[in-house]
């Protein structure tokens, strides 16, 4: 074999090995990058979830003390909880409250986001900071502040009394109304920001085009601007509805016992009654219901069709 041929061979052979190895290297890097997140999720989400599920199937130790349970596979825990009105009523109430709060947040947040995106001009960033500003104060503190705002001696009641919406001695705190107000207020930024992000990307030329094609401003909004902002609306409603449904701070601070939400129920069952399996069952039911509702919602709105 000549030298040239020998060199030729090596030249031909050499390029082959590297690609798979770099490919492998890249995959390895990807796994490495995912590792911390995966570990975190495994330790703090998957394992507790499994543990919670196991707890939900436990039964009391016969003749044992309060809070003593043994591992069984008592799926009837679910049926018993779901048919007990001290549990399913707060569950339904939670969805009604958070549903109303989500709609209110949408009605307030959408125009706000629209105004910032299209009319904000040079004040856009300032306005956005103002939307986020409340987060600099603790969630609990802000909710307690609403007690003052809605208190019988507070400004809101004073106005309502003058215009006769509330009687001379009537009030609005504590009440379901106050709870819903609290939820709406606390989750409003989660509604506003994603909608703003969507609206900001809508090309103003498209709105001009709709006007040029005989759409009145309102029609143009509902046919063009709103559909194009749907991804933001979907994200905003989910970010509001999901945490609001599981929230217990607002009901605890702004509501009466008759306004308890499922979060309060879970807390009470777990910490005060020490009925861990029932608390776990409630948590799972809450999670499953939200998951189903979200799936139906996303399917109906059909976000995957949007650009």
């Amino acid at each position: 074999m000549s030298i040239a041929a020998a060199i030729g061979d090596t030249i031909e052979d050499e390029p082959k090995p590297p690609p798979p190895s770099t490919n492998k290297g890249r995959k390895f890097t990807a796994y490495l990058l995912m590792l911390p997140g995966m570990l975190w999720l495994a330790i703090f989400f998957v394992i507790p979830l499994v543990a919670l599920f196991m707890t939900s199937l436990q039964t009391p130790v016969p003749g044992g003390e309060v809070g003593q349970f043994q591992q069984t596979f008592s799926f009837s825990n679910y049926a018993e909880t779901l048919t007990d009105d001290t549990y399913y009523i707060p569950l339904i109430r939670s969805f009604i409250y958070s549903g109303i709060a989500t709609i209110l947040a949408l009605l307030i947040g959408y125009p706000l986001a629209y105004a910032i995106a299209f009319k904000g001009g040079k004040y856009r960033n300032l306005l956005l900071v103002m939307v986020i500003a409340p987060f600099f104060v603790s969630f609990i503190l802000r909710t307690i502040a609403w007690r003052q705002i809605l208190a019988d001696e507070g400004p809101v009641v004073a106005v309502l009394r003058v215009i006769g919406v509330v009687g001379e001695t009537g009030g609005i705190y504590p009440s379901a109304f106050a709870v819903i107000m609290g939820l709406t207020y606390n989750f409003l930024p989660f509604m506003t920001l994603p909608i703003y992000a969507s609206l900001e990307r809508v090309d103003p030329k498209l709105i001009e085009a709709s006007g040029d094609l005989y759409a009145k401003p309102m029609t143009g909004f509902f046919k063009v601007t709103f559909p194009l902002s749907l991804p933001g609306v979907v994200a905003g409603t989910l970010l509001t509805f999901i945490p609001a449904a599981g929230d217990y701070v607002n009901a605890a601070l702004l509501g009466r016992p008759s306004n308890t939400m499922i979060g309060n129920r879970i807390e009470y069952t777990f910490l005060s009654v020490n009925d861990y399996p029932t608390a776990a069952v409630l948590s799972f039911i809450l999670m499953a219901t939200i998951l189903i509702m979200v799936l139906i919602y996303i399917r109906r709105v059909g976000t995957e069709d949007l650009v």
Binding site: E208, S210, Y214, A215, V224
Partner: peptide, 17 residues
């Protein structure tokens, strides 16, 4: 929207949805 005038926009401005 009241004018009998229509425009072909520079970057078309077709409704993407």
């Amino acid at each position: 929207y009241k004018r009998p005038v229509n425009t072909v926009f520079q970057n078309y401005a077709l409704f993407p949805h």
